[in-house]
Design a protein around this nucleic acid. Sequence first.
DNA 1: ATGGTTTTTGAATCAGAGGTCAAATATGTG
DNA 2: CACATATTTGACCTCTGATTCAAAAACCAT
Lengths: 191, 191
Amino acid sequence: MGRPKQFDEEAAVARAMEVFWTNGYAGSSPAELAEAAGIGKGSLYHAFGSKRELFGRALDTYDRAGAEFTEEFLSAPGSTKERIRAYLRLLVDVDFDAPVRRGCLAVNTALELGGRDEGATAAVRRAVERSTDLLAARIERGKLAGDVPAAVDAAEQARFLMVTIAGLRVTARIFDRETVHAAIDTALAGL
Amino acid sequence: MGRPKQFDEEAAVARAMEVFWTNGYAGSSPAELAEAAGIGKGSLYHAFGSKRELFGRALDTYDRAGAEFTEEFLSAPGSTKERIRAYLRLLVDVDFDAPVRRGCLAVNTALELGGRDEGATAAVRRAVERSTDLLAARIERGKLAGDVPAAVDAAEQARFLMVTIAGLRVTARIFDRETVHAAIDTALAGL
DNA sequence: ATGGTTTTTGAATCAGAGGTCAAATATGTG
DNA sequence: CACATATTTGACCTCTGATTCAAAAACCAT
């Protein structure tokens, strides 16, 4: 019963996520979002309720995709330090190689809405915590493998790395690749 | 000749800076800016030309004030590590104690306009470089004082610290004071 | 095919943004 | 005092943003 949906909701959210990622929450108009999703403005509101709710869906999608990618990347072969270094470099290199520097949606959202929008703040916090746990687990494995000094506190180091990642993604908006790469190497001295 | 200015331009820029700092560039309307500056919209445009130009002035003011404060703070007595730790803690504590978390205008601008607005990008880069130089100078002094291991590369460490500071100011929008303080301690292990 | 139901769409709405302007106001000069 | 010059102001203008809505379209069941 009823007219069937003409578009894939997940796909539409994914397209909207790209727009939010590139232009920020306030910087993304319903018209842009609808066009990117390939639907009319009305359909967008019918399906998602409001721009803010659509953004929530986009954040969730970003979180899920990011966690999946991070998990896979960190479990690839190589020493802990090398793997984490490769991870940090990849994060910034993706940005440098992209046609437009857009950084990280979570970091961007933390700055744009952190402290102002409770839901968005919580969503970003969850995403960061998820990545922190993945990094901590990788460091823990490194300790077991004798890869990382036993004295290192994995959770603490992981939290520090997340701060560093946030800083790197900000810095990559302003400075060149070499400067950022050098900062990565300095940051990893503690491992 | 001519009617004399009824307001202090520097003071008006300082008030506008607060608005931009709190609400971002796009998030600050001419009406708000004019009201904060205590003048009419017309006067604002007459004196500054455009919102964008006013923002440029605000960025300059922020840079100058920040550099002055940093220089003074870092040259206070105490070991290098303790002074820098106190500096980082102060930066985030100011935010935690403020009625509204607004982070750092330079970091906010890097994310909002970095890569999109050449002038703003350059202004932020200048501000970051200025702070980097001040930190490097302090570390260098620490090396002379025997405070910091001679093997430490002051410039490199300073650049890394700036990345960390950016990350801290992002993180402070999302997490609590204790988490951020812990990250500071971990970051300073290299000194 | 008629109905009941859900989706789609673009037009319409209302508010606010960024900016301009003419008129009013306040000086120094002749 | 009248003039040239510079500043102030709020009304005004145009454009866009976020959202709503009525009507058309597409399906299933009878």
